[in-house]
Design a protein around this nucleic acid. Structure first.
Lengths: 209, 209
DNA sequence: CTTGTAAACGGAACATAGTTCCACATCTAA
DNA sequence: TTAGATGTGGAACTATGTTCCGTTTACAAG
């Protein structure tokens, strides 16, 4: 279900919709680009120049754009499996903790994911239409994950039930934009504050923690 | 004391530190640029091209850069008095409402300010060093304003006392980055959620009431 | 009023970015 | 082996921030 055409860069070795197989060299170049991008993003952030990534992969920019029509498509492809991992963490946390605690932990998990990718959050929230696909994929995978946790916690009376998961995702994403250096603790505190906001006014609102 | 050298573009008509008076045409151009910028920012957002602003003001880009060494300096100059207005709203709200309510209202006031300036929040949080002065000015004026409200509310036992005003400012700024269209309500809800987070577990400070 | 000159001006030019284009190279099926 | 679809590289185009510098202008001193 989560398979969207987030970029041209999937289609495992077998043929595309045309019937003709993907050329081996093309396949190689796509992989080289993804690998190079991961490294370059880690070193220079998500905003690294296209040329830098193409050079690192040993291909020309033309090749880059053949496989990733827009810069953002590369970003999307690179982070796709990390998004999946984050989504998959939800049911696991749910099985290990009380509903409220699971929710709180997942929110931090999500925050950590975003925060460690320099520039990812900014890119996502830049409003630039090029990141629409990435944004869509984030919602597609993460919203159901969060929705489950949220509903369970609300049913258990641990948090209020009138907040949309999509809003929360966006909010946490926003909070993580500051990035890097000493801000990690601060980000965690702000996410925790948001979660406490969810708790406020649920059945169990007493002073503690 | 809020007078910092946020840009080259202050110094009211009188002489600068050199002793020589500011030339009248220069003075005019600075004003034309500020006025044009306000209009262009409203229409095209804070990210509008320098040339567009220069054209609107009827000056060349060279003149632009003479008065505002960096694009960001213009942004800072344009929003300076709006920041002041926001800061000044704090004591007024404090005198009209209960501490907790005053805090909540000011947070929304601040959020509205940021949110209505397309791209302002993004610029502030872009991490780009050019916006350092603007960011500093924001903190300089707004942090004391919020600190007062926060302390009063904590003393009244309405909110917890272990949160730094600077963190909150940054958090609200982040939450407002999404901007425009249908997001205003959502932003307000998220800011409210953050405030509820402050209320959750109130009493962490020497409270009474 | 004239004039010397520091100050200000304008916009061409430069640097960096994303993206497009297309002549040429390469792969693959027959 | 070979034809042609597919893929490649990088020059070139666009947009944008910023710098440079020859020219113009304000203004105070004479």
């Amino acid at each position: 279900m989560p398979e969207e055409k987030i970029s041209t860069a999937d289609a495992s070795k077998r043929e595309g919709s045309t019937g003709r197989p993907v050329r081996a060299d093309a396949q190689r170049n796509v992989e080289a680009l993804l690998e190079a991008a991961l490294a370059v993003f880690a070193k220079s952030g998500v905003d690294a120049p296209v040329r830098e990534i193409a050079d690192a992969a040993g291909v020309g920019v033309g090749t880059f754009y053949r496989h990733f029509p827009q810069r953002a498509d590369l970003v999307a492809a690179v982070f796709r499996h990390e998004v999946d991992a984050c989504a998959d963490a939800a049911p696991i946390l749910a099985s290990e903790h009380e509903p409220g605690e699971a929710l709180a932990r997942w929110m931090q998990r999500y925050a950590d994911f975003i925060a460690t990718k320099r520039g990812l959050a900014s890119a996502l929230h830049s409003g630039h239409p090029a990141y629409g696909a990435l944004h869509a994929y984030f919602n597609e995978r993460l919203q159901p994950a969060l929705a489950g946790l949220l509903k369970a916690a609300a049913t258990a009376g641990e948090v209020r039930g009138d907040v949309e998961p999509e809003e929360l995702l966006r909010a946490v994403g926003s909070l993580c934009m500051q990035a890097s250096d000493d801000g990690r603790d601060q980000t965690r505190r702000m996410v925790a504050l948001l979660v406490d906001g969810l708790r406020y006014g649920a059945g169990t609102a007493r002073g503690d923690r």
